[in-house]
Design a protein around this nucleic acid. Structure first.
Lengths: 347, 347
DNA sequence: TGAAATCTCGAAACCGATTTCAAACTTTAT
DNA sequence: ATAAAGTTTGAAATCGGTTTCGAGATTTCA
């Protein structure tokens, strides 16, 4: 019979101790396997632990050893499948190492993020992982970095990217390689008129993608055209309005690189509406390879990151930092090209 | 200058007390506003709290008042936008009421869910919300309900749906109304050959949707055709293979109700591949109105639930139960029809 | 003005674990 | 047999808050 209660009240280490005829210290020792306990007693205690399916109060444990065994994750928005994938990978990795995860969604708002960081501090999380920073300008960079610096002085923080003016652990995607894969893929298919849709240049990784694209064009003696760059947000609306703008040009592009699958969805929608077929008329590729890439018609050619590895690395750094271990140098996450239906050779 | 540390060590209520020249009890009283404190002292203490941006240790507080101010959420998979939307709504509602949220993804596996429930118990969460139950048969119903009953005897649990053999609070969607909205919508557009794709009849809400559909057909003297029902999972693959089956029939349907937006995406893909246009040739509608509905081309007509209200209700019940308040009778969540591009009048 | 009622506030106990310390008990070596 | 060394164990302190209790200060009212 599985039961963790006796007289309908949560049992403690003292209840176990009493029933086993030993002291609480001994029960604790059995629980944590931290010191020798005579075999006979050990078995007696263990039997009771099993009998009641006893699990020590995490609050008391945390208070005692000043560790919560909780890792805080501040994500921009788990409703975004990119963050969701990364979050789940982190959760899995954390759980495997005996940690739990406290998730907060900042929705890109700086004030909200600061609030949540304070909350995580109050919860005494052992480390914080930030995936996807703020995009709102509701707080100045200076205020923000000051607040975050303050938090970081107490709790180790690892970021998937960078925070301006704050030094903390950072695990990044190799954006240069990602951009190279996509651009080269299109070049190999014969495309020369390649447009970029979505993303802000003040976002670190976006800037790298943009620079790399430009660099590769130059290397291949292809003219860079300012009008093929349509910056914006990271949503489908940006893709939609962006592609409409591109199709108004004298020389319309034959391929489009969207900043993520959302933007790509908007691009596909815009093209379809105007009677263009993907990929027959125009190829569309994107970053992130979320499940959206697989859901759209045609399925999207996209850049994948192996989210499990990504999450594991974030958690690994976070736990190492939390436990005061040395954190070895951090290699960036390697992107992979997944070719599907949305890209084809130029006709 | 924002700073919560002094001598690089986390400060406590005692540090504040010492510096203010009062006892820890007084600081606590100011902190919780639980008793009178002479104005002069109160201000002195408050000034220090502000100065250091002091936040009381949640572990200590939780241990002391035997409440963690944490609500555990067991979700099937936040990567599914339906659960993600509901989760974010819950998080918002919880935060607004001073609670934090501990998220677990069961991935539909019973063993994993049981494990996570135990973990949540160990964390001493004040209540548990389950959104999206298990679909794997890795644990028998009997074992599962026994384990869950055991947990529920200690921690109040609210479920968005039902758990067989376990009595706990339950907030459900009005599936009958949802099915009615969709079926009537198609009937009004002139459709008489309506197919159902995806979903398992042993899932409570799916069964209701199925029954309601049948009922409405009967009421309208429309022949019910077994071959128009293609059960399966809740993913796009099911939609894809389902629609292929339907298109092999002598009399192909003119409208398809997908069990969710994923299945609908698969249906649209299948139709497009075979040269059918949506909605010109065949209308496609679905349940859940996740952002996928807005992303596909054409945009999907779908059933929305007002996730904010849904989440708020779940949290409201959870907190009431946690605080020992009476939980009033629970009205089901009212669904709404959102008409977009994927449904059109029969030609 | 003095007794009664009300406020204010600190000491101490408590929540439930871990950990240090030293006493008591075993085992080993001479 | 006895000293030395090693093991096992419980009492007590600790983590950082909240809460009860009662003493002392203040206010109210006759």
């Amino acid at each position: 019979m599985v039961s963790d209660t006796k007289d309908n009240k949560t049992i403690t280490i003292y209840d176990i101790a009493k029933e086993a005829g030993v002291s609480a210290s001994t029960v604790s020792r059995v629980l944590t396997n931290s010191a020798n306990v005579r075999k006979e007693k050990k078995e007696r205690v263990q039997a009771l632990i099993d009998k009641y399916n006893f699990k020590p109060n995490a609050l008391a444990k945390g208070l005692s050893d000043t560790k919560s065994h909780l890792i805080g994750i501040v994500s921009a928005d788990v409703r975004n499948p990119f963050y969701a994938a990364l979050y789940v990978a982190c959760e899995n990795a954390a759980r495997q190492r005996g940690y739990n995860v406290l998730l907060c969604n900042s929705l890109g708002e700086g004030t909200r993020e600061i609030e949540q960081l304070h909350m995580l501090k109050q919860q005494r999380v052992d480390a914080i992982i930030q995936i996807g920073g703020r995009v709102d300008d509701d707080v100045t960079d200076k205020t923000f970095s000051k607040e975050v610096t303050d938090i970081v002085s107490t709790i180790p923080m690892v970021v998937s990217g960078k925070i301006e003016g704050v030094k903390c652990y950072s695990v990044v995607i190799d954006a240069k390689e990602a951009s190279t894969l996509l651009t080269q893929h299109l070049l190999q298919l014969g495309h020369r008129k390649i447009a970029l849709v979505g993303g802000r240049l003040d976002v670190f990784s976006t800037k790298i993608k943009y620079d790399t694209y430009k660099e590769i064009l130059e290397k291949n003696n292809i003219e860079f055209r300012e009008e093929y760059i349509v910056n914006g947000r990271y949503d489908s609306e940006t893709g939609y309005s962006g592609v409409k703008k591109l199709l108004g040009l004298k020389e319309i592009p034959t391929a489009i690189i969207a900043i993520n699958d959302f933007a790509a969805a908007g691009v596909v929608r815009g093209l379809t509406e105007l009677g263009f077929k993907v990929p027959e008329d125009i190829s569309v590729v994107s970053y992130d390879n979320t499940y959206i890439a697989d859901l759209l018609t045609p399925k999207l050619t996209s850049i994948d990151y192996d989210y499990e590895t990504f999450g594991k690395k974030l958690i690994d750094v976070a736990i190492k930092a939390a436990e005061g271990e040395e954190v070895s140098s951090l290699n960036p996450i390697t992107p992979h090209l997944v070719v599907r239906e949305s890209s084809a050779a130029l006709r």
